[in-house]
């Protein structure tokens, strides 16, 4: 059932409305479990759109097997999605640096607090992100070590390729995930694919993981999908490879492939003078799980991340 989570007036006719799709079990269940799937926090990250669709579609095929409540929030930054913008175009700010908000504050505070209030009470929340338009990622769970004891058992069920502990600002304070974890809703960030794109196989993989989790929580009585156990890493086992030149990058290896120490994984060139500026070389062997997609690079831009030592 399509429900309004929050609705605020804008100056010229339109409203800012955030919706959720609440899917209830067919039969009455005492104290049903509840899982929330949140997506669209960054308007240029669209991988969650397919996951929301596919999750709702599969449940609708066998609704009798649903034993809990599934809340799907496809777009908590609807104008960002409309304008292909990471930030909220209304505030020119990153919504995921504005949690938990306040119900008595200004508009952005009320929006973020409204989302948090709406998700409270869930047994588990998945905050689905994509990568940005610059790099491509394999499906992964990112979680803060602060909440690892609580979250790791769920993260292992997601069918992601890896679990990255204490990874990036995604798991920091002022994010939805941090705010919900502090408030007692176990929340994991899932990151995959790339901005402005949808990778259907990745989406199917994570949807399988969501059904796996729902089986574990007693919320799904249908067939339990076959899933994999993700590799688990910490920051110390990830090699970051960054550009040391401004130029044009082309990858020379496949994404999601293993590389050896010393492999040339890409090159940066200057198209103006027809000169190669640098070879991009992996220092350690491992899985190339992050790969630069957007060719134009400046000094410091991320070109690749390699998961080392976890195999």
């Amino acid at each position: 059932m399509k429900e309004i989570v929050l609705e605020y007036e804008l100056p010229v006719g339109e409203k800012l409305t955030i919706y959720r799709n609440r899917i209830m079990p067919c039969s009455e269940i005492n104290s049903p479990g509840r899982i929330s799937i949140v997506s669209g926090t960054h308007g240029d990250e669209l991988e969650g759109q397919y996951i929301c669709y596919e999750l709702a579609r599969r449940i609708a095929l066998e609704p009798e097997n649903l034993m809990g409540i599934v809340d799907i929030y496809p777009a908590i930054n609807p104008f960002g999605i409309d304008m292909a913008s990471k930030n909220s175009p209304l505030f020119n700010r990153d919504l995921n640096r504005s949690f938990p908000g306040s119900s008595s504050g200004d508009l952005i505070d009320r929006v973020t607090s409204g989302v948090v209030e709406s998700v409270l009470g869930s047994d588990l929340c998945l905050d689905i992100h994509a990568s940005d338009i610059f790099v491509r990622e394999i499906p992964q769970v990112r979680l803060s070590e602060d909440f690892a004891d609580n979250l790791l058992p769920f993260a292992k069920l997601t069918n992601a390729d890896m679990i990255w502990m204490n990874a990036t600002a995604t798991v920091h304070e002022s994010t939805l995930a941090h705010s919900l974890n502090i408030l007692g809703v176990p929340t994991m960030v899932i990151e995959m694919g790339q901005g402005h794109q949808i990778n259907k196989p990745y989406g199917d993989q994570i949807v399988d993981g969501i059904f796996n989790i729902m089986c574990e929580l007693g919320m799904w009585m249908g067939t339990r999908p076959r899933t994999q156990l993700p590799a688990i890493s910490s920051d110390g086992s990830v090699e970051f490879i960054r550009s040391e030149k401004a130029g044009i990058f082309i990858p020379l290896t496949e994404h999601n492939h293993f590389v050896k120490a010393g492999d040339i994984i890409g090159e940066i060139f200057d198209p103006f003078i027809g000169e190669k500026l640098m070879d991009v070389v992996s220092e350690q062997p491992g899985l190339l799980f992050t790969q630069r997609i957007y060719p134009v690079v400046s000094e410091g831009d991320l070109l690749a991340r390699i998961l080392t030592g976890a195999f």
């Binding site: 007036e9 804008l10 200004d106």
Partner: peptide, 8 residues
């Protein structure tokens, strides 16, 4: 010139 609801 324009203002949202609940803007400061």
């Amino acid at each position: 010139a324009l203002i949202n609801q609940y803007e400061t």
